[in-house]
Design a binder for these strands. Structure first.
Length: 561
RNA sequence: CGGGGUGUAGCGCAGCCCGGUUAGCGCGCUUCGUUCGGGACGAAGAGGUCGGGAGUUCGAAUCUCCCCACCCCGACCA
């Protein structure tokens, strides 16, 4: 491709709206342009890479027996009402104003629609259906370029099995395919156990890439490989100490003390001698959640423990329920359910709120004073705590979710009546799995992992072109003639070549553009070397340069650089 | 949705606090000439509803109010 005839608008300056490296480079290298918040146009160069990624995905999905579909993005709202997901998605679901249609944020409903009446016998299973398609979600806050958009390309796949054993097989196949896809794309990633959240279903795993731009937090143990989303991660942390002697309960006047930190300063005590109270409302009933010291309640764990429908209490409710405001709430004489984090088990001589503003209570013995207390794992694993499996140090960091695989079960097949007859002629719901990959995130994550101060550093097989051919002074006849010849030869030899044939930009400009665009190999043709019949090869990644004879270019390309 | 920030030429910004010629600068763009291996130089040009609306004022990019868009943090999130 001739650069002089291509639309590859590179930018010297950093666009003001971009913050993370991949976003900045995608704009600067002319891969994407933003249209609106979370809405991007893929320019030819970016789309070329995207197509390569999609082709890899296709190959690996086909390899596990996947069949490619193309489902409509425009869906009848009625189907979504049947599964209750118009309400479940809420404002995230784009709705069409002049028709009862929605823009699909995912395709379980449509898959179930087609499966119903078509997958009718155990002989029709298993099926793996997938597509690579644009999804629409009205994200409240799009961010980080294409990493979270309102419109994005997703590879979504659905498995249809006759039973849970079949689902296990389909799930394992997807796990295998996903590893193959991300390996082939050259990404450093890891797999974490995750919360299945609003999707329902049992097992779920996420494919993650470590990145400061990530929206998820994961806990990872380098030693044993334990990896889990912080929402569900477990760890060993220092539990509360039980003193030999329990003091009696006493009230302390603590004016304007509202936080655990302030309490510790005020009473000159350690955080580990305190218990923090949080009030949640579960199915309309208040629940007091007691945490050690300043530990935050892990609401995902709380939700799965209580079975959903949990929310923090509003400030007015606090006063009504406990008689005090946040900061003065405690377990003593609390009239409703009390659950506590495991670390507090058997704690005594603890300080907590008195359910009376400006007062705290000391000398609390949870065994003695809070008889109906229940203990669960309710905390969020933190950096440096011990791994639940091997007790070495856990690392907690931000990560980008590339893919997610779910064992859905029968939620959608039951809701939409996707039934089949088993070997005994008995009617059963089809067992489903659901598997997604954020296609654009693969590209963004690749750049996050492969760039330097000059620009992107592409590697096979995602590189948009193999070779960036640079004619330094195209007004020089010898140079342009040599370039044209090399260009034709390279293409004939099967290389994808981006040819900088522009005759109106300086050498430095071309070098910088080539580094920014980041093709793995640069072939540089200039007067200086051409005089001796030579050209120069430059490895983009290492910066290493080599002068070779022009006739030997094709042979030289066979050698590692 | 809460908090913070930004909006001035295609891009990056100054000017605004303290109202007053024709709204600037760099990059990019057009034409001509020179240059030609690490973002060249000279000359001449084109390009602006100063995010939108209302108001205050003799006079508003600048002050006031309302609205919109975008970015960041949080909440939220398959």
């Amino acid at each position: 491709m001739r650069l002089s005839k291509s639309f590859i608008p590179t930018l010297k300056e950093v666009p003001s709206e971009a913050v993370i490296p991949s976003h900045i480079l995608m704009i600067r290298a002319g891969l994407v342009r933003q249209v609106s918040a979370g809405i991007y146009t893929w320019l030819p160069l970016g789309y070329k890479v995207l197509r390569k990624i999609m082709e890899i995905i296709r190959q690996e999905m086909n390899a596990i027996g996947g069949q490619e579909f193309h489902f409509p993005a425009l869906n009848p709202k009625e189907i979504w009402e049947k599964t209750g997901r118009v309400e479940a998605f809420g404002d995230i679901l784009f709705q069409i104003k002049n028709r009862d249609y929605v823009l699909a944020p995912t395709h379980e409903e449509i898959v179930a629609y087609h499966a119903k009446g078509a997958v009718v016998s155990y002989k029709d299973t298993p099926q793996i259906w997938y597509q690579i398609q644009t999804k629409f979600r009205n994200e409240p806050r799009p961010r980080s370029g294409v990493i979270r958009g309102r419109q994005f390309i997703m590879k979504d796949a659905y498995s249809l099995d006759k039973d849970f054993e079949g689902l296990d097989v389909s799930y394992a196949l997807h796990d295998k395919a996903y590893r193959a896809i991300f390996d082939r794309c050259g990404l450093k990633y890891f797999v974490v156990g995750a919360s299945s959240g609003a999707m329902g279903g049992s097992k779920s795993e996420e494919f993650m890439v470590k990145s400061d731009a990530g929206e998820d937090t994961v806990a990872f143990c380098e030693k044993c490989g334990y990896a889990a989303n912080a929402e569900v991660a477990q760890s060993f942390a220092e539990p509360v100490k039980r003193h030999a002697e329990s003091k009696t309960v006493y009230e302390i006047f603590t004016p304007n003390v509202r936080s655990i930190d302030e309490l510790c300063v005020f009473l000159k005590i350690d955080e580990h001698e305190t218990a923090k109270s949080r009030i949640y409302i579960h199915d309309g009933q208040p629940v007091l959640v007691l945490m050690l010291g300043n530990d935050e309640v892990n609401e995902t764990k709380l939700n799965s423990l209580l079975g959903g429908n949990v929310r923090p209490a509003h400030p007015e409710e606090l006063k009504e329920i406990t008689g005090a405001d946040a900061g003065s709430i405690g377990p003593i004489d609390f009239k409703h359910r009390i659950i506590a984090d495991n670390l507090l088990k058997e704690g005594n001589n603890l300080y907590s709120g008195a359910n009376r503003n400006d007062y705290h209570i000391g000398g609390i013995d949870l065994q003695r004073d809070v008889p109906n207390i229940e203990y669960f794992d309710l905390r969020t694993a933190e950096n440096g705590e011990k791994c639940i499996r091997c007790a070495s140090n856990l690392e907690v960091f931000k990560a980008i979710e590339l893919g997610h695989i779910f064992k859905l079960g029968t939620k959608y097949s039951e809701a939409l009546g996707v039934m089949y007859l088993d070997e005994n002629g008995k009617e059963k719901p089809v067992v489903m799995g659901s598997y997604g990959i954020g296609v654009e995130r693969i590209l963004a994550c690749f750049i996050e992992q492969n760039y330097d101060d000059k620009g992107i550093v592409w590697k096979d097989p995602l590189n948009p072109f193999d070779i960036h051919l640079i004619g330094l002074n195209m007004k020089n006849n010898a140079v342009s003639t040599a370039c044209e010849k090399i260009y034709i030869e390279l293409i004939a030899d099967g290389y994808e070549v981006l040819y900088d044939d522009r005759n109106d930009v300086s050498a430095g400009f071309k070098f910088n553009d080539a580094d920014l665009l980041g093709m793995p190999l640069q072939v540089i043709v200039g007067e200086k070397n051409l005089k001796d019949g030579n050209i120069e090869l430059k490895n983009r990644q290492t910066g290493e340069k080599r002068i070779v004879m022009i006739e030997q270019l094709l042979d030289e390309l066979q050698k590692p650089i």
